[in-house]
Simulated scan of single mutants.
Amino acid sequence: MYCKWSVRYVEYCGAIAMALLCAGIIRLGMLGKLHLYIHPRYTIFTLVMAGVGLIVSLVSMMAGCRLRQTIKPAVYTGIRPTTMRVATALLLVMACAGFLFVQPATLSSRTAVSRGIDRNPTLTDVSVSQALFDTADYSQLGIKDWSSLLAHYDANFIVGKTASITGFVADNGNANIFFASRFFVTCCVVDAQPIGVPVYAPDWRHRYAPNSWLEITGEFIENPDADSLHKIVLKPSRIQSVTPPREPYVY
Rank of each mutant, 00 (worst) to 15 (best):
residue 242 V to G: 12
residue 154 D to M: 07
residue 137 D to P: 13
residue 127 S to C: 07
residue 82 T to F: 07
residue 29 G to K: 13
residue 220 F to V: 00
residue 27 R to Q: 05
residue 6 S to P: 08
residue 183 F to I: 00
residue 35 H to I: 08
residue 218 G to N: 01
residue 213 W to N: 07
residue 17 A to Y: 03
residue 243 T to S: 15
residue 122 T to W: 05
residue 96 C to M: 15
residue 113 V to H: 11
residue 47 L to C: 01
residue 115 R to H: 04
residue 143 I to T: 04
residue 117 I to M: 07
residue 39 H to N: 12
residue 160 G to P: 08
residue 72 K to W: 08
residue 78 G to M: 03
residue 47 L to K: 03
residue 126 V to L: 15
residue 9 Y to G: 14
residue 158 I to H: 02
residue 102 V to L: 10
residue 48 V to L: 07
residue 33 K to G: 01
residue 139 S to P: 10
residue 84 M to C: 14
residue 15 A to F: 05
residue 213 W to F: 00
residue 179 F to N: 07
residue 204 W to S: 05
residue 161 K to I: 00
residue 201 A to W: 11
residue 124 T to V: 02
residue 23 A to P: 01
residue 62 M to R: 14
residue 242 V to F: 00
residue 10 V to Y: 04
residue 204 W to I: 06
residue 133 F to L: 15
residue 12 Y to D: 14
residue 153 Y to C: 13
residue 70 T to I: 02
residue 15 A to H: 04
residue 165 I to N: 09
residue 170 A to G: 00
residue 110 R to T: 09
residue 247 E to P: 10
residue 2 Y to I: 03
residue 123 L to K: 04
residue 224 P to E: 00
residue 12 Y to Q: 14
residue 64 G to D: 13
residue 69 Q to E: 10
residue 147 S to Q: 01
residue 139 S to F: 06
residue 230 H to A: 03
residue 172 N to T: 10
residue 16 I to R: 06
residue 107 L to D: 08
residue 196 G to H: 08
residue 129 S to I: 02
residue 3 C to K: 14
residue 166 T to S: 04
residue 180 A to F: 02
residue 142 G to R: 06
residue 175 A to S: 15
residue 139 S to D: 08
residue 223 N to K: 08
residue 155 A to W: 00
residue 234 L to D: 01
residue 5 W to F: 01
residue 220 F to T: 01
residue 130 Q to S: 12
residue 141 L to P: 02
residue 73 P to K: 12
residue 13 C to Y: 00
residue 177 I to F: 04
residue 105 A to W: 10
residue 90 L to K: 11
residue 47 L to M: 01
residue 234 L to A: 06
residue 118 D to W: 05
residue 225 D to P: 10
residue 12 Y to H: 13
residue 85 R to W: 06
residue 218 G to Y: 03
residue 110 R to C: 00
residue 175 A to M: 12
residue 21 L to R: 11
residue 124 T to G: 05
residue 159 V to S: 05
residue 103 Q to T: 10
residue 77 T to R: 14
residue 113 V to W: 12
residue 124 T to F: 02
residue 23 A to Q: 05
residue 239 I to F: 08
residue 210 P to M: 00
residue 87 A to V: 13
residue 151 A to W: 05
residue 23 A to R: 01
residue 139 S to H: 11
residue 88 T to R: 07
residue 175 A to T: 13
residue 217 T to H: 15
residue 15 A to Y: 04
residue 79 I to S: 12
